[in-house]
């Protein structure tokens, strides 16, 4: 334990209003902490640069999963265990349920929250590819306001996001219109469990008479933050699925992906595997189970 708990303040006001008030009165002074699965790791390593923390754990207004006619709405404080237990999620948003099962282990899933995963903003975030391809919207709240932005505009740089210093991520809205889309999500991690993603690719596509009428590709670890692959999507959109198109898709993603070498993998590996994953998805669309 390299961090000194005596040098950090932590308060738990207990309600959303009280948390927002605190953040409004001293903008930027308070670091929100939910399940602690990121910040407590930094704390143990003596790298937690947050003298004042406000606890979001147990704030009831943040922990929910409910549905409207158009969307499934997930509170930022919902844990990944909550998502896995939610019939709404497992039935309608299978990719998100799958992503939730990737988070660390059972003990991590019972603490890690969807909001925490997004605000932490790791390029490798497990939930991000699913949210990107489900075209999620982020609802942001502060004492003064609330607003919604597309998730694919939430991350603005390496570990940077669209939140102002007094704002909290409140909820994620997931449109209920992907039931007829073909869906794909695969993570390639350092091992089968307790793994940080080396590369992950999600995809949703709507196919009409063999033509890709709608496609979204979301990737982890191919850029400084989780990102849609718009140029690759464009290369595939409104095209009939053929072997040639699969090669076009490969070429597009190899060009668009800008991964890095780091302690867990290499840029070369990430690019090639991303292309292979896309190919695997496109072969599925073609109706061929596996690439020979």
């Amino acid at each position: 334990m390299r961090g000194n708990p005596e040098t950090h303040e932590l308060v738990a006001p207990g309600s959303l209003a009280a948390v927002l008030h605190l953040m409004a009165v001293e903008p930027g002074a308070w670091t929100p902490i939910a399940g602690g699965t990121e910040l407590m790791v930094a704390h143990a390593a003596g790298r937690l640069n947050a003298p004042k923390l406000v606890s979001l754990w147990g704030v009831p207004e943040l922990r929910f999963v409910h549905a409207t006619d158009e969307s499934i709405v997930v509170g930022a404080g919902a844990t990944f265990a909550d998502l896995r237990r939610s019939a709404l999620i497992t039935e309608e948003l299978p990719l998100l349920a799958k992503a939730a099962s990737w988070i660390g282990s059972i003990a991590n899933q019972s603490r890690a929250t969807l909001g925490g995963n997004l605000v932490n903003g790791s390029p490798a975030a497990d939930s991000s590819p699913a949210l990107l391809v489900y075209d999620a919207e982020i609802e942001i709240i502060s004492a003064r306001d609330s607003r919604r932005i597309p998730y694919h505009k939430f991350h603005t740089g390496y570990k940077r996001n669209a939140l102002a210093v007094d704002e909290l991520l409140y909820a994620v809205h997931l449109p209920r219109r992907f039931g007829h889309h073909r869906q794909y999500l695969r993570k390639v991690g350092t091992r089968r469990a307790m793994a940080i993603s080396k590369v992950a690719l999600g995809a949703t596509a709507f196919i009409e008479t063999g033509v890709i009428r709608e496609i979204r590709l979301g990737a982890a670890s191919l850029a400084a933050f989780p990102t849609r692959l718009h140029r690759t999507e464009d290369a595939l959109l409104n095209k009939p699925i053929t072997n040639d198109l699969i090669q076009t898709g490969r070429n597009a993603i190899l060009t668009e992906a800008l991964p890095i070498d780091d302690i867990r993998s290499t840029a070369e590996y990430r690019r090639r595997v991303a292309a292979n994953l896309l190919e695997e998805f496109l072969f599925e669309l073609l109706g061929v189970e596996k690439r020979p």
């Binding site: 399940g35 407590m40 143990a44 923390l53 606890s55 003990a107 991590n108 019972s110």
Partner: peptide, 22 residues
């Protein structure tokens, strides 16, 4: 750092890593 689970305890009926809980 929540990787090994040696510190696992149960809290309110859920499994948690006690090293990651303030």
């Amino acid at each position: 750092e929540g990787e090994c689970g040696s510190c696992s305890v149960r809290m309110n009926g859920e499994l948690v890593n006690s090293c990651l809980i303030p």
